[in-house]
Write a protein that binds this DNA or RNA. Structure first.
Lengths: 196, 196
DNA sequence: TGTACATCAGTGAACGCGCGTTCACTGATGTAC
DNA sequence: TGTACATCAGTGAACGCGCGTTCACTGATGTAC
């Protein structure tokens, strides 16, 4: 069903609502989201979004869960094709955030989300665990670092998260060279150089 | 005027509205803020906040501007009393964010603020400049670092901003030892150790 | 010291609007026979 | 192949509510004389 016909059944309304919500958030922030505004944007009855997501928290949770799922996938792809997995994961994290600012804007805002959403916990937890595993594996590769996994993991997460946030907000330029240079010095201190 | 008498004129309603707004944001996020909810919280007519701030963006801009002013002051105090100014500024940045989550939550959200607020530009610009100056001064102190000011500044900002964000969100613990350890490795790579 | 007046911070009733929610419904799809 | 029926995605009118905004007002403060 790829044709855009005017029909009673949308075909994939749930997906369309997620995409529209992410776009709306990217444009006007999470505060501007209402079930009715999303319905209007998709061109559907105002009651339709509630049919799929229940309420605003349900909609935003679905956007966030889908974001975590895709972030996790992007990090997995990056790690598999690189000789410096942690560095690649860091770049993938920042790249995902820049390419999906709407999703990113709600993924780390628990007060906007449904704390009981199972998908959110599943995908959020998997993405988190992937970062921790990558740090642990990276530290295991070298014996000349005396920092704990916790400290390196916190620093790695902080730098990629902060970089992504500041770039999305427009406070730092979205420059790949800058991103690589920043990550080189923070995510892989024991390598201390540029990746292959 | 320190007594809490029931009077027609509040005494310092503007200040009280700023405090209440920051508290409300810290509790329920910026999405939950309305002029009427703040008026209710302070116990004042629902039209009073508009009298001082015009609209929601004006109120949030005033909260953000006050936040930048105090952040700037905190960083200045930290730099003046430390032998490692950049490290001290970084800790002050994180500490400010943790102690003022309401202010911090709107300070870097341009879509919620009035882009023409002069106080916001003034104090935001001063805080930004202080960070850049501290990085430049820090780099000037050592000749064995081959990174540009831009890269070090971006990394320093990213790590303190990311750390603050993740701690406020509850994703990293608010642990001073962890904060110091994370900053030691990222903000001052050429010193590579702990401060005095 | 006392009076008159200007100023302005805060009030409260009224308004129109967009919101979430409800609910009886309509129309498309899939399955049983 | 055709008919009957169950399912469910999406509709649209109606509701009550909190919101921002307006506006004539009230009451406290400060200044002029």
């Amino acid at each position: 069903v790829s044709e855009a016909r005017d029909q009673y059944h949308h075909g994939d309304l749930r997906r369309a609502l997620l995409v529209a919500t992410a776009a709306e958030i990217a444009e006007h922030g999470p505060s501007a989201i209402s079930l009715r505004s999303i319905a209007r944007r998709v061109g559907v009855s105002h009651a339709a979004p509630a049919h799929h997501f229940g309420d605003r928290a349900g909609l935003l949770s679905a956007v966030a869960a889908d974001g975590f799922r895709r972030l996790n996938q992007a990090m997995a792809d990056a790690a598999a094709t690189s000789e410096a997995p942690l560095f690649a994961i860091g770049k993938a994290y920042v790249a995902f955030a820049c390419a999906n600012p709407g999703e990113f804007a709600v993924m780390f805002r628990p007060e906007l989300l449904d704390p009981d959403d199972p998908d959110l916990h599943t995908h959020g937890g998997m993405a988190h665990q992937r970062l921790l595993d990558a740090v642990a594996a990276d530290l295991a590769d070298c014996t000349d670092v005396d920092e704990s996994v916790e400290v390196v993991a916190a620093r790695s997460w902080a730098v990629v998260h902060g970089l992504a946030t500041l770039i999305i907000t427009g406070l730092l330029p979205a420059d790949d060279d800058l991103i690589s240079a920043v990550l080189s010095g923070a995510v892989q201190p024991h390598l201390g150089g540029t990746p292959a």
